[in-house]
Design a protein around this nucleic acid. Structure first.
Lengths: 221, 221
DNA sequence: TCCCATCTTGACGGATTCCCTACGCCGCCA
DNA sequence: TGGCGGCGTAGGGAATCCGTCAAGATGGGA
């Protein structure tokens, strides 16, 4: 089930969105200010964030930056201002879509559907087994009380979305750390070791997170 | 169906391209910034990338380098600047075509068709049979628990991409080891023997990895 | 302010891969 | 028959790559 975090300081709008989204089989959490929103996103790992730019404590742009610091979760921005300057600023900060108030709630739901369809379509990611653990990439959960850090999730994400395929070191480094880290292979060694310690039954003889010397790594289902 | 990843930070242009390309039976994914683009390319494996150079987070050139680090997927570059310097830089970084804004959408579609017709994506190469083994060049896998080293893969790659064709010794040496090794034919003997040992049913009587004395080698499907 | 989780950075032993030399075989030709 | 060039095979040293431990740096929350 798709998890949506709605961030807005108007209780009426929150209620309306919660009812409409739950009726359409979405899981909904709400936050009334930016600080709460960032904290809840960090602990709950939503699949989508609906964010009002006019918040009491933080600039909406700050919330976008805060989220983009560690996640690529889709963000749909709500705003009372229709100026193209705000729009550009929000989209440049990393928002995925922009809706101007007042809006028809059906329109927002349609945009949410469009964004979530785009996210889930690349390959329907169902929970995956590694070692004795069940990993849910969408919910960002691992069974057995295992906790992964943001970087570990990004790395595992790339590997698990290419099951059986060799993923080159350069690809892992550029997608997880950025293009500037193209040759910093010691990060890979470090974090692959951590993933194995946390996920493999016998970390010194991995069966799923495999090394291909001189090339990269491979997730073997 | 051909898969196209469109990277641009202008929502209007994204929408227009998505509609026009989908109407022409392309599968379309979009990304609004370079980081997202790199991640999505890594998980979705598009057959073609349409890339705007003016992105909010990364230099477009960086995105090209990031992609070229692991894939030969065709890249069509969009840019607002018509200067030939940018053009040269993008093409040298590995872009396949260059379109200056503003452009007619029909023109872009025509170029997309041209590029996809010209280049069959290496990521969509179907597995190949050699001896009793199935070889997947994209995933870097061989059936039957056979393991190949990086140099062996590079050599096999060249041969398998030229099925039935004679590949000259010089060409193999320059593409696998570099131009400086143009006359070191003993490397070829060494690694061809290893490939045969690992892949051919009867290594001393190869049926697929054939020698053309004095000329080079040939992969016989 | 301190503490804790996370991300960096450095160093070292062991494993893999590569490079290089040497040798035997075969067909060709003088 | 003996020499020669091209090819296949074998093995060991060197270079590279990888896993691991440890410690410093960073930043956010209590």
């Amino acid at each position: 089930m798709t998890r949506v975090l709605v961030v807005d300081d108007e209780p009426q709008l929150l209620r309306a969105l919660r009812i409409n989204l739950r009726a359409r089989e979405y899981e909904v959490e709400v936050a009334a200010d930016g600080t709460t929103a960032l904290r809840r996103a960090g602990s709950w790992h939503p699949d989508l964030v609906v964010l009002d730019l006019g918040l009491p404590d933080l600039e909406g742009i700050e919330v976008i930056h805060g989220l983009r610091g560690w996640t690529q979760v889709p963000i749909i921005v709500l705003s009372g201002r229709a100026g193209s300057g705000d729009k550009v600023e929000a989209l440049e900060a990393g928002a995925d879509d922009y809706v101007t108030k007042p809006f028809d709630i059906e329109e927002l739901v349609a945009r949410i559907r469009a964004v979530t369809r785009r996210i889930s379509s690349p390959d329907s990611v169902t929970p995956v087994q590694v070692g004795g653990h069940t990993i849910d990439l969408a919910a960002k959960t691992v069974s057995g009380g295992v906790h992964l850090t943001p970087t570990e999730w990004r790395l595992l994400d790339v590997l698990l979305r290419n099951p059986g395929k060799l993923v080159a070191q350069q690809q892992l480094l550029t997608t997880v750390w950025g293009p500037a880290y193209r040759s910093e292979t010691h990060y890979l060694r470090q974090y692959m070791a951590q993933l194995r310690r946390k996920l493999e039954l016998d970390p010194s003889h991995p069966r799923h997170l495999l090394t291909e010397p001189g090339m990269g790594y491979r997730y073997q289902p």
